[in-house]
Amino acid sequence: MRMRVVTVAWVLPFASGAGCGAGTDSTQMAGPSAAASSGSSASGAATPRIEDALVILHRLQKIADRNGGNRFSGTKGYDDSVAYLRDRLERAGLHTSVQHFAMRDGTTTSNVLAELPGGSGRVLMVGAHLDSVKAGPGINDNGSGSATLVAVAQALARTGYRPRDTVRFAFWGAEERGLQGSLHYVKGLKDAEKAQLSGYVNFDMTATKGGAYGIVDAAKSSLADLPKKVRGDFAQIPFAAGSVRLQKVLTRAYQDQGAPVTPDLTTVTATDIRPFLAKAPTVPVGGIVMLSANPRKQKGRPIVAPCYHRKCDTTANIDTTALGRGMGALHQTITELAGTAS
C-alpha cells in the first residue's frame, strides 16, 4: 500500500506527472480461520485453504531473498513473482494474461489478470497489488492480498464453480511507485468495458498483526471521526452508486468470519481503488486495508502497521487468523456478488 492519507487534500484527477506515460502495452496469453479451511460452501464452491495462501507467501519470500530482498516493480524479483502467480493460476485452470506497460521512468513492468468466465456479460473485479517496496519483501504489503486472491481463485476453480458474472482477478504492478499499474489498466478501458464492470473490490494488507479490519466506507459514516481539517475533502469523494452495497456485502462477509470491522475512509486515495474513482467513476468500488488498530509514532512519524515498508515485512509478519478471515470473506463476497450460473 502506498500511504497518502488524511494529510493530503482530495484531488481526483491524476496530473500528467503523476499518471502513467503512454508507454507500450502488450498482452501475453497464456491460528487459521475455520472458514478458510478445506470444505465446501452453501453455493457448492470449495472454500479456500489457508495452507495454499501460506505456501504462496513463503514462495514470495524466497523470490525476494534471491533478488536483493525485494519484489519491486521493474526488477527480477517482481517479474519472478508474476511468473510464479501466473503458473499457479494456470495450473488451477484459470485463463491468464499479462499486461505490460511502461512506467514513468521508462522501464517496463506488468499487471496480471485471470478470469473465471460467466455468461451474463457483467464482470466483477477483485484486485491486489503484487509489488513490494525496495526496502523489503512486502509479504504483508501486499503479498497477503495477492495470496488471498490466488487461494480463493484456486478454491473456486477446484470444484468447477461457474459464476453468473465473470470474475476477473487483477494483480497490479507498480502500486508502490504511484498506483501506476491499476491506473494504466483503467485508463485503457473503453467506455463499453467500464459499463460491464459491476464493481471493483481491493484487498491490501489483509494479514496485519494487531490490525483493524478497515472496510472502505462508501457510506461515509466515519466522516465525524476524521480531523476537521480534512473532513470536507473526504466528504467530496464521489463513490459510484452501488459502492455502499459492496461495503455492506464485504462487511457482512468479514463479520461472518468473526472479524470486528471498522468503516474507514482514510485509505481510499492510497490504494488501487483511486484510479477507478478517477477514471471510471461509474464503477462501484470497495475493499479492505488493515492498518494498526492502535497506531503509535516513532520519531514523529506514524507507524501505520508493523514492519510497514521495511525489511522485516517477512512471513514472520503475518497474522494467520486475519489472513484466513480475509480468504473466507473474499470467497463469500465473490459468490454473493458474482452469483452462480443457472
Results as ranks from 00 to 15, higher is better:
M1D: 06
R2Y: 14
V5P: 05
T7M: 04
V8T: 12
V8G: 02
V8D: 14
W10G: 04
A18K: 10
C20W: 03
G21W: 08
G21S: 15
T24Y: 06
T24W: 00
S26C: 06
S26W: 12
P32T: 06
S33N: 13
S37W: 01
G39T: 09
A45Q: 13
T47R: 12
P48Q: 10
R49A: 15
D52M: 11
R59N: 04
R59P: 00
Q61T: 09
I63E: 11
D65S: 14
N67A: 00
G68C: 14
G69E: 08
S73Y: 07
V82E: 09
A83G: 06
G93E: 11
H95E: 10
Q99C: 01
Q99R: 12
Q99M: 05
H100D: 08
F101W: 04
A102I: 02
M103P: 06
R104N: 15
N111P: 10
S120W: 00
G121M: 03
M125Q: 05
V126R: 07
V126K: 04
S132R: 00
A135R: 03
I139N: 15
N140P: 01
D141S: 06
L149T: 06
V150S: 09
V152K: 00
Q154I: 07
T159H: 12
Y161W: 15
V167N: 05
V167Q: 10
W172R: 00
L179T: 06
L179D: 03
Q180I: 13
L183V: 13
L183Q: 14
Y185V: 05
Y185K: 07
E193R: 11
E193H: 06
Q196N: 07
L197H: 03
A212E: 13
A219V: 02
K220G: 13
S221I: 15
S222Q: 02
R231P: 04
R231T: 08
R231K: 11
A235E: 11
A235L: 02
Q236V: 07
A240L: 10
A240G: 01
L250R: 08
A253I: 01
G258E: 05
P260F: 02
I273S: 01
R274A: 12
P275N: 07
F276T: 12
V285I: 07
Q298P: 04
R301S: 14
V304N: 04
C312I: 13
T314P: 02
T314Q: 06
I318D: 08
D319V: 08
T321Y: 08
R325A: 09
R325Y: 03
G328Q: 08
T333W: 11
I334Q: 01
T335E: 13
